[in-house]
């Protein structure tokens, strides 16, 4: 019944005679293409286009300014300070997130009974919205009755004014961000560990490695792709994080957690400076893409050759 090249590979799969007319394929994929085009592709291009115009609510004129909006952004000290805070936020999220997800994944990989249960628990934060997570962390880190301060006071230290101190507020924001994004990263890394041939780690043990050295020399290098994926994930979520920070600190205290995304919302929705906000949108896109490429190049450098 088949014609053409009978390889089982999906990319060159055979087709049943008289069945799979290309027209059917076009018709069935058209709605998806249209929706994606209208609601995803068009807005991105539209943003890029609009970022070249000076659009303010005060005038009906929208003069073409080329890269003027970008130059305005780069000349704005508020941009650079929010970029710096975003850098701290992203780096902190990646560092804490990767450390925790690697440690947790290695531990999970060692158990058989109870694995499904604990893994199921660990995914729970994934189903919590960013606003709800922020609210839970606000409650958790309340300086009067919050749990961390209770522990500190129990140990004889003074409680910390978590959310009214810029430094600590950044820590809480990072913790909340990692909390919501950890489940998926944990799944990536655990999945990587579980695809490692068990004989490899056994061979390492027989070859004289301790459990720790086998983890460092054998398992970790083999899951570099999954670690990269987790890094991209944490980075993407942190660079584009809005709800968590907005609901947790609103950028404060002062502007100590005013990230790029919050700056973008302020420009667009509070100051109605649409052109500049669009320039910021594009900058966030490019930042994301640049960082992702950077992680991938790191992987190529340190991963398997």
């Amino acid at each position: 019944m088949a014609e053409g090249n009978p390889t089982p590979d999906a990319a060159t799969a055979t087709r049943i005679v008289g069945w799979q007319h290309p027209l059917i394929a076009y018709i069935s994929s058209a709605p998806a293409m249209i929706i994606v085009a209208v609601f995803l592709a068009f807005p991105v291009l539209y943003a890029a286009w609009q970022s070249l115009f000076a659009i303010t609510p005060l005038s009906r004129e929208t003069p073409f300014v080329g890269f003027g909006n970008y130059i305005a952004v780069f000349n704005d000290p508020a941009f650079w300070s929010s970029l710096g805070r975003t850098a701290i936020f992203v780096a902190g999220t990646i560092a804490l997130g990767l450390t925790l997800s690697i440690i947790f994944a290695f531990a999970l990989n060692r158990i058989v009974s109870g694995l499904r249960f604990i893994r199921g628990l660990a995914i729970l934060p994934y189903i919590v919205s960013s606003v709800a997570a922020a609210l839970m962390f606000r409650t958790l880190f309340n300086s009067d009755f919050g749990f961390p301060n209770q522990v500190l006071e129990f140990l004889g230290f003074e409680g910390i004014a978590w959310l009214s101190n810029g430094f600590y507020a950044m820590i809480v924001v990072i913790l909340a961000q990692v909390w919501t994004d950890l489940p998926l990263a944990l799944l990536f890394i655990l999945g990587g560990l579980q695809t490692i041939d068990k004989q490899l780690t056994e061979a390492a043990l027989v070859d004289g490695a301790t459990g720790l050295r086998s983890a460092i020399h054998i398992s970790l290098p083999l899951i570099v792709p999954q670690i990269t994926l987790a890094t991209v994930w944490f980075s993407f979520k942190a660079v584009t994080s809005l709800g968590t920070v907005l609901a947790l600190t609103g950028g404060g205290p002062g502007d100590s957690t005013q990230l790029l995304t919050l700056e973008m919302v302020r420009l667009g929705f509070d100051e109605y400076d649409t052109g500049t906000a669009m320039a910021l949108v594009i900058i966030i896109f490019l930042l994301n893409a640049g960082l992702t490429l950077f992680y991938l190049s790191l992987q190529r450098k340190f991963g398997m050759k």
Binding site: P43, T240, A277, F285
Partner: peptide, 16 residues
Amino acid sequence: PMLVPKVGLMFPLFLV
């Protein structure tokens, strides 16, 4: 488009 962050779409979609 999986790689497009939603924060980036807030404004363009708002205008649309």
